[in-house]
């Protein structure tokens, strides 16, 4: 079943066409890689998907409903969560509090009820806290609850951002270069995490430069270059594709 359908998506910045007539789909439970050289337009696609940017033209359909004119918080409510290429954690908050903010969409207690010390509120807060703890443990940050988010090492910050996004229990998780800046050991932890998410049926659109990560976890790969889709296929197909090798892999290796 198709969860996300992108049709003719285009975004211009002045004269630059950052995303140029791109179409692809992501099926429920799939892990799709979005790759391409720097400046290819990958992050712009994610910004369009999450409503931070409006498409110049094209459509985005999620679960059969149009997303492309909704505000970011409505898109999030529809079930899309993301991480950021330049880590954007809440700097002043602890690791645990960052993840608790992520549970916003899964809680509903009103402030008025909290003023009245309603038992339901206390229960919900305890549950949110437990969920957040479990997620921290899930991304191997169980010992870091109380640490200030930005005091964590780089790889841990990236995983914390994933935990924060997961706290919303999104149907579609968008990861923007989660392995960037990681050392090989951290990368192994990340790959294991993404695999375990896949085993639970989490749908993921993964932007990544690191071929080890992309080839290791993706079901399908979409390749962008200068804003255009130049190839799409399984990891095996992509690694043989001539255009891709010249545009991208050739440059890297």
């Amino acid at each position: 079943m198709t969860l996300l359908r992108v049709e003719g998506l285009t975004r211009r910045f002045g004269g630059v066409v950052a995303v140029d007539d791109v179409s692809f789909t992501v099926g429920a439970g799939e892990i799709v890689g979005l790759i391409g050289p720097n400046g290819a337009g990958k992050t712009t696609v994610i910004n369009l998907l999450t409503g931070l940017l409006r498409p110049s033209s094209g459509q985005i359909e999620f679960n059969g409903a149009r997303l492309d004119s909704l505000t970011p918080h409505r898109i999030a409510r529809a079930g899309v969560a993301r991480t950021y290429q330049n880590i954007r954690l809440f700097r002043g908050l602890s690791a645990l509090d960052n993840v608790i903010v992520g549970t916003h969409l899964r809680t509903r207690a009103s402030f008025a009820a909290r003023l009245a010390f309603a038992p339901a509120v206390r229960r919900e807060e305890a549950e949110a806290r437990e969920t957040a703890r479990a997620l921290l443990a899930r991304v191997n940050l169980g010992q870091r609850e109380a640490a200030r988010a930005t005091s964590l090492p780089y790889g841990e910050q990236r995983r914390l951002e994933i935990a924060r996004a997961l706290a919303a229990q999104p149907e579609l998780l968008l990861l923007d270069e989660p392995a960037a800046g990681m050392n090989p050991a951290e990368m192994d932890v990340l790959i294991a995490l993404i695999r375990s998410l896949r085993d639970e049926g989490q749908t993921i659109l993964l932007i990544e430069h690191n071929m080890q990560v992309v080839m290791g976890v993706c079901d399908r790969i979409v390749v962008l270059n200068f804003g255009r889709k130049i190839a799409e296929g399984t990891p095996a197909e992509i690694s043989r594709d001539k255009d891709v090798i010249t545009a991208y892999l050739g440059e890297e290796e």
Binding site: T50, P72, H73, Y84, F90, G92, V101, H104, R164
Partner: peptide
């Protein structure tokens, strides 16, 4: 707190 720290991120988290 989320809005105070980073309004854009807050929005993409459904706030």
């Amino acid at each position: 707190e989320a809005i105070r720290e980073d309004e854009t991120v807050a929005r993409t988290m459904g706030i």
